[in-house]
Amino acid sequence: MNAFQWTDATSVKQATGQNTTPVADAMLVNAKPESATIFKAGGVDVLDLMKEHVLAPARIVGIGNLPKLDAIRNAGKDGTHLGALVTLAQLERDGDLHKSYRALTEAVSHAATPQVRNAATLGGNIMQRPHCWYFRNENFKCLKKGGTVCFANQPGAENKYHAILGNQTCSAVHGSSISTALVAFGAQVELTGPQGVRRVPLEQFFVTPEKDVKRENSIQPNELITDVLLPTPAAGTGSWYIKFGERESYDWALADVAVVLEQQNGRCTKASIVLGAAAPVPLRAAAAEAALIGKPINEETARAAGQAATTGATPLEHNAYKVPIFAAIVKRAILKAGEV
């Protein structure tokens, strides 16, 4: 890990005035790392990138001690505010979240390890970079780092964990499985910069490779996530999340899905189905959602929606097996969400 300066920020205002660069920009091969300043909260991902020698900032602004950002606050019908510095462990243990946003607490409790969940923050989790092993390997100057090749998409590449949808340009899947659930609940992310505060639907915050392959979201220089707002679910809403990995102990998702369903009179009136580890961004499965609207939730409709979930998939050499896995876990998550 390179040597760097450390600034301990004590307020959001100070932090956003430190001339920081998004981590994505600091990682570009033509970036000037000696001048890059980045934010770090829990910082598990940032340290990982630095230890792999793919990120080498000159200065880090510590935002772990910023005041007031570490609370979960129920704001009534406006929804629930999750401070950006809330740890994953806090989310996991919160009884109200568990009741109203079950898919989220399921996603959180299956993320990383207990030790990491105690340190990692919500904001950092959303901001983490993909776990594509070409991207994280210093020997590969891939598109994401400002290079000219997606190594995972080359013939003969090792891509069993890569994207099956939206994978033409870059097939790294998004690293945050918690975002899979957040998007399903229609979460909005609050971003604070030197000029003020903006709030963006999380789904729109993420950026596809076709828009800009070098980043996964639209965070700006000097900007940081301060809050995530979860809208209050309508009555009769049920949700579930399933993460499928090769192991049940600590593992990255091969495929994960969050399902949020509203039902009235035994029929599904609203469905939000989001796939993780399927595409470079958490991906709404529109065809699966459409397959449920107006129908009762049962084995047959859930199965049809599961089949529809990966409509248009373009698997790579080694990841076609993800298609039936998504079909299975989408079906199962729908049935669990529909139990409410």
Partner: peptide, 22 residues
């Protein structure tokens, strides 16, 4: 990686060994 000869999973994230739940 067959194209470049690098081991892609030279860590304990991706070189997967059995954990407590297994």
């Amino acid at each position: 990686d067959r194209n470049y000869g690098h081991m892609m999973n030279a860590n304990l994230d991706q070189y997967k060994i059995l954990g407590s739940r297994e």
